[in-house]
Every structure is written in structure tokens, then in C-alpha cells.
Amino acid sequence: MSVTPSPGQDTAAAARAALTLDRGTAVRVVAIAAFLAIALFALPTIGADWTTTFTSVAIYSIITLGLGILYGRVGLISLGQVALLVIGVWTATRLNFATGLSFPLVLLLSGLITCAIGVLIGLPAIRLSGLHLALITLMAAGAVNVVLVAINFPNGGGGFTGRTSTPDLSGLQAVRRPSIAEGDTAYYRYVVVVAALVFLVALLHVRSKPGRAWAAIRESEPAALAAGVNVVFYKLWAFALASFMAGVAGALLAAQVGQPTAQSFQTQDSLTLLAVTLIGGIYSLWGAVVAGCFSQLLPFLFQVQWGFNPNFVLILFGAGLLQVLLTAPGGLAQQFPKDMASLGRLAWRGVGKVTGRGGRT
């Protein structure tokens, strides 16, 4: 015999659920605030080399965030994020030398121009998926690299390419940083703030109508079409958002480097970027931060701090990717908290057995 809950019981259950939700939201807000406080005020005090490295981590977190949205939220495997990053770096460098625009405006224009180019690249490839889409975007990355080697980055010259024929490049100016963040520490904080804003934009997309449409497309395109979702439009939306993020990251990277060179960007970097994104976690925004650390912090530790050959990092990436594909599809962002919780329960049970009290969860 079933018992129908009374209206009072329904109200109490709803109140408890709302209280639990509010507590969970409060915990997340506190965790994010603590993370930002540590990133802004604690990390820059470690040292100059560390500050430069963490600046790169923040920039590459933006890039992996866009790739995570494409793959984890929509199910599109793109290997063209590094190409879009290069376009963002080139655009920001050209705007910097050719105009007197402020850095925030250069940042915005670089994102918008890269966004437009990303949509143009995505238009012919939007009806593809899986391996076919990955190959098309990888070929696009290779084409961008070929063009980059031919024209290189602008260095203050005239014409469309902005290259000067002066053999002595030592006197060339560097890409301008924002006037409020010309030093390395100040620029690091500037990059962290911009990255936080980009993550907020991504969160708003995921929690709103585009996020629901992307989830429907990822689960089943035919079902999404049957439900009235404009699959082509929302796929292009995802491409546009990821391209905009890559353009913003490119502008930040151009100002960090000062004088970018073509040798710094290789087509195979697209594969490494996808690997670290999968390791970090494609279903969580925190996974982009983990991926940024794997992409920039680990090579710094191996080469500078520990004196190892940085190519050993590729072996570590391969082992991590294998482990993620076999046992942890959610990546470290989802698996690590679960493992720590299991370890904590196991340790508590061990304490209970030793002391003869407690230990049950």
C-alpha cells in the first residue's frame, strides 16, 4: 500500500533540498574565492620564474577551456585550437604595432577576429564528427602553421604582414602590455582576472540554454533534432566561443612573450593540448585549470627545477591519457576528489579499528 505524502511533508522536503543546494553553492563560492585569493596574492610571492610559469598556466587554461567545451559539452573533437591560438597571437601583435588601441580593446578585437575565422573554419567541418572532424581541424592547424612559417609574426614593419627587413632585430619593440600591468607580477594578476572572466562566461553558457542544447547534441544528434534543437547553429556557437577564447588567450600570450616567433608553435602541439585536456577533465570547468598546469607547469618542473629532459613529460602525458581513457573518463578534476574521499573513509575506518571506537561511515 502506498502512502501519499502530505502537503506539509512536500514543503519540508523541498525546504531541505533548497537548504542542501544553498549549502553546496556556498561551499563552491567559498572554494572559488579561496582559489582566486591564493592565485592572486600567494603564488606571485614564490619567485619570478614561477610567476612567469603561472602566467602561462592561466593563459593555457583559457585555451583548454575552449577545447573542453567543444569535446566535453558538445562531443566535437577539434585539433585546431593551437591554430586559433596562433591566429590570436598574430592578430594581437599586428594590432599592437599598427594601432594605438588600448590593450583591453586589442584583447577584445583579437577574440572577435579569431572567433570569425574559427566560424569560417567550422562551417565546412560542422557536419562532420569524430575522427573526420579531428582530421579536418588538424589539417587546418597544419595549414596555419605553413602560412605562419612563410610570413612569421609582425615586428613593427609596414604592409599587411607587418614585417621589417632590418637584419638587426635587437632594437625592435615588444608587444605592449596594459599600462596598469607592465611588470611581470602585475601582468600575472591581470591575466588571472581575465581568465576568471572567461571562465565565468563559460559557466553562464553551460548553465543556460546553450549548455542544455550542447548536452542534447552530445548525447544524440537525432534526438536533439527531434526535440527542436538547431544542431548546426549550436555547434557553430560552440566553435565561435572556443575560437573567441583562443583569440583572447593569444592576445595575452603575445603580450607575455613580447616578440613571438613562428618556432614557438608547432602542429603537433594540438595533439598534446588534447591529451592534457582529457587528463584534466573535459566535463568540468576545473579540468581546464588542471590541464593548464599539466601543459605549462610540469615542463617547467622537469626542465628548470629538476633538471630532467622535458621530453619525459610526453611519456607522463601518454601514461596519464591511457589511465583516463581506461578508468577515469571524467579526468583528474572528477577522479581526484573521489579518490581523496575514498582514502579519507579508509583512513577513518583504520583509526576506528585501532582505537576501538568510531571508524564507521
Results as ranks from 00 to 15, higher is better:
Trp214Glu: 11
Val192Phe: 05
Gly183Cys: 01
Ala249Thr: 11
Ala249Trp: 07
Trp237His: 13
Ala213Glu: 02
Val201Met: 14
Pro210Asp: 06
Ala195Ser: 13
Tyr234Gly: 01
Asn230Trp: 06
Ser179Pro: 08
Val198Phe: 08
Ala216Tyr: 03
Ala181Glu: 04
Val201Lys: 01
Asp184His: 10
Phe244Ala: 14
Gln256Trp: 10
Pro222Asn: 05
Ala226Arg: 07
Ser220Glu: 10
Tyr234Thr: 00
Leu241Asn: 08
Val191Tyr: 11
Phe244Tyr: 15
Lys235His: 03
Pro210Ser: 01
Val175Asn: 01
Val206Leu: 15
Ile217Gly: 09
Lys209Phe: 11
Gly250Phe: 09
Ala249Gln: 12
Ile217Val: 12
Ile217Trp: 04
Tyr190Pro: 00
His205Leu: 15
Leu253Thr: 12
Ser243Ile: 09
Ala254Asp: 05
Thr185Val: 15
Arg176Thr: 12
Thr185Ser: 14
Glu219Ser: 14
Ala240Phe: 07
Ala238His: 02
Gly250Asp: 08
Ile180Thr: 14
Ser220Thr: 12
Ser179Ile: 10
Arg177Val: 02
Tyr187Asn: 07
Pro210Ala: 01
Met245Arg: 01
Gly258Ala: 02
Ala181Pro: 08
Asp184Cys: 06
Ala195Val: 07
Gly211Pro: 03
Val248Met: 07
Leu200Pro: 02
Val175Asp: 03
Val248Ser: 06
Gly258Met: 04
Tyr187Met: 05
Leu252Gln: 13
Ala186Phe: 03
Ser179Asn: 13
Lys235Met: 06
Ala213Asn: 13
Ala181Val: 02
Gly247Pro: 01
Leu253Trp: 14
Phe239Pro: 11
Val191Glu: 12
Ala238Arg: 00
Asp184Val: 14
Glu221Pro: 03
Val193Phe: 13
Arg212Ala: 11
Gly183Val: 00
Ala202Lys: 07
Ala227Met: 15
Ser243Val: 06
Val248Tyr: 06
Tyr188Ile: 07
Glu221Leu: 00
Leu253Gly: 08
Tyr234Ala: 02
Ala240Val: 00
Ala246Lys: 09
Gly247Ser: 04
Gly211Met: 10
Val229Met: 03
Phe233Pro: 00
Val198Arg: 07
Val193Gly: 10
Arg212Tyr: 12
Val175Arg: 01
Val201Ala: 15
Tyr234Trp: 14
Glu182Ala: 11
Phe233Ile: 04
Ala255Gln: 08
Pro178Asp: 08
Val175Ser: 02
Val175Thr: 10
Tyr190Ile: 09
Ala255Val: 13
Ile217Ser: 05
Leu241Val: 15
Glu221Cys: 01
Arg177Met: 03
Ala251Gly: 05
Val229Asp: 02
Asn230Ser: 15
Arg176Asp: 14
Phe244Pro: 06
Leu253Tyr: 15
Gly183Ala: 10
Ala254Asn: 07
Ala251Gln: 06
Glu182Gln: 15
Ala246Val: 11
Ala195Ile: 04
Ala216Gln: 04
Ile217Glu: 05
Ala254Lys: 10
Tyr234Cys: 01
Leu204Ala: 12
Leu252Ser: 11
Leu253Met: 13
Ala181Arg: 09
Ile180Met: 14
Phe233Gly: 07
Pro210Leu: 00
Val231Tyr: 00
Leu197Lys: 03
Val232Asn: 10
Gly247Trp: 02
Arg212Val: 06
Arg212Gln: 12
Ala251Trp: 02
Tyr190Lys: 09
Arg218Ser: 09
Phe239Met: 05
Glu219Leu: 12
Tyr190Trp: 09
